[in-house]
Design a binder for these strands. Structure first.
Length: 505
RNA sequence: GGGCCCGUAGCUCAGCGGUAGAGCAGUGCCCUUUUAAGGCAUUGGUCGAAGGUUCAAAUCCUUCCGGGCUCACCA
């Protein structure tokens, strides 16, 4: 939709603007100059107004023309820069005839630079009295600018640019026209910076590991497959960083983390995008208890730094990230929320319970998977406040160490907030013999048709054979963290360019 | 993949059986402190696509394309 075929009405608007471009050149102006020396941002002018007015110093401000209010031989306009909006006032007497002729050829969406002293209008509006005007970029495609008014200090937007598809596809417009969208992505950046600062201050080393991998692993998911031409070989886009980061622990780096993209060839919904940012942290000589301490402290500190408080409101629901968070073993959680005594239930009982809750299971599904299924059905959606669920069944945790008190469980936890899985961690399995058995079991599942079962990685096993110290590992989805801290209902709202089907189907 | 809903001018929307309308943007004229500036005039649409029903379809039916929400699948 909205394709220009050269005859669409939009192209008439573009044609008009291209004609103005010629007219601007005829007046001797360059519509696409190279730079402009900005002395002040819009917010500087407002913050330092008293001083600037008293000194009568000229300021130079650049920005995008968002709205104009013409008055014959004068005009008001609002300029938008990265810090906000500022009114400018252009008067024929002051700018001169040449500049005013240029002004008349400008459109909403053009970038301009202005210089002049600041003043307040009769209505008390801080403005720049434009003495010189420069066109910095001519916009030839009409910008769908909404109308704004300020009433009782509140900014009211009329006819906002709200088509969700267009907002995601043309994110540049969304950013240019919807101020709160810029705020979300500034916050995302602040969150990632805060995470880095938190880990750096604890002597973790940030590293980068391969995205293109000959084998994929570290999670249960289907990968994207690609091909290397010169080597003529199949490669996968990573589904996690885990197996490479643990090789670095073998190498003695002891504390490492990576923030990067993972790719999973799965469905797309409110909390899933095919490529997404993941934080993984590995700490030698630590176990999953230590990783719980680290995770809750990190979440609370990052939230406090970015939003001012560890207590957030997400979609009307208050969420308190202050540590300590409850740590509930999975079987206890199922007893508590689902009222099912797993320890004294037969496999058939568990299968029956899952089916009653709507699960679609293959016959003969192993017990550990049934327990995990039961947990996801009856507990997960109820975990709104941050909670650690600990001690996962062995069957669903092929990279986690067996629980020190119960060999059918692992020392693994996941973080749940708002009913989502927000993190995953374990005491990392470093026994190479046990690890090989787990991989082999995964491969047998794969042979039975489970295309998400993990793949045996011989080099990873070799690394484990050389020896990895006891290690705690933690993975945290950055997108979900950002959703929570920016009160965004969809992961698409925190990804600048979320996955969309191509235009023209 | 299932269910519900949507796709009409550049943007935001109304029209829901008699062959298209508003506001904003655009264009022209007036206006040298306005702020959703204002006044007068005006351009602009094969109503997502293709079939069908009908004397007549933006409007009803079918299919397709794209999207939103939701359930399922999925970390």
């Amino acid at each position: 939709m909205n394709q220009d075929d050269g005859h669409a009405p939009e192209s008439k608007l573009i044609e008009q603007r291209l004609q103005k471009l010629d007219a601007i050149r005829d007046l001797g102006h360059t519509p696409y100059p190279y730079s402009f020396d900005v002395t002040h941002l819009s917010s500087d002018v407002i913050d330092q107004f008293e001083k600037l007015e008293a000194s009568e110093d000229e300021v130079a401000v650049a920005g995008r023309l968002m709205v104009t209010r013409g008055h014959g031989k004068a005009a008001f306009a609002d300029l938008s820069d990265r810090k906000g909006r500022l009114q400018i006032y252009i008067k024929l007497d002051v700018v001169g005839a040449d500049a005013f002729d240029l002004w008349k050829l400008l459109d909403i969406g053009d970038f301009i630079g202005v210089r002049g002293p600041v003043f307040k209008t009769r209505m008390g509006q801080i403005s720049i009295q434009v003495k010189t005007l420069e066109l910095l970029t001519k916009s030839v495609r009409p910008l769908p600018v909404p109308k704004e008014e300020v009433k009782d200090g509140e900014r009211i937007v009329h006819d906002a640019f709200s088509d969700k598809e267009l907002r995601y596809r043309r994110r540049y417009l969304d950013l240019a026209l919807n101020a709160d969208v810029q705020d979300v992505f500034r916050k995302r950046s602040a969150i990632v910076s805060a995470v880095r600062a938190f880990l750096d201050s604890r002597d973790f080393l940030e590293v980068e590991t391969p995205v293109l991998q000959t084998l994929y692993g570290g999670a249960s998911a289907r990968p994207f497959v690609t091909h290397h031409n010169t080597l003529d070989m199949q490669l996968y886009l990573r589904i996690s960083d885990e197996l490479y980061l643990k090789r670095l622990i073998v190498g003695g780096l002891e504390r490492v983390y990576e923030i990067g993209k993972d790719f999973r060839n799965e469905g797309v919904d409110r909390t899933h995008n095919p490529e997404f940012s993941m934080l993984e942290v590995y700490q030698a000589y630590a176990d999953y208890h230590d990783m719980m301490d680290l995770a809750e402290t990190m979440y609370a500190e990052v939230a406090t730094q970015v939003t001012g408080s560890p207590v957030l409101t997400y979609q009307g629901q208050e969420i308190d990230l202050s540590p300590p968070w409850p740590r509930i073993p999975m079987l206890e959680a199922i007893a508590q929320y689902g009222d099912i005594d797993v320890a004294n239930a037969s496999d058939a009982d568990l299968e029956g319970a899952c089916k009653r809750l709507g699960a679609d299971l293959d016959p003969g599904t192993e017990r550990g998977i049934l327990i995990n299924e039961l947990f996801e059905l009856c507990v997960e959606p109820k975990l709104i406040q941050p909670t650690f669920i600990t001690d996962y069944p062995l069957a669903v945790s092929p990279l986690a160490k067996k629980h020190r008190d119960n060999p059918e469980l692992t020392e693994r936890f996941e973080i749940f907030v708002n009913g989502w899985e927000a993190g995953n961690a374990f005491s990392e399995l470093n026994d190479p013999v046990d690890q090989r058995e787990r991989f082999e079991h995964q491969m047998s599942l794969r042979d039975k048709g489970d295309d998400e079962a993990q793949v045996l990685d011989e080099d990873y096993l070799r690394a484990m054979e050389y020896g990895m110290p006891p290690t705690g590992g933690l993975g945290v989805g950055i997108g979900r963290m950002v959703m929570l801290m920016t009160d965004s209902p969809s992961i698409r709202d925190v990804i600048l360019f979320p996955h969309m089907r191509p235009e023209e189907g």
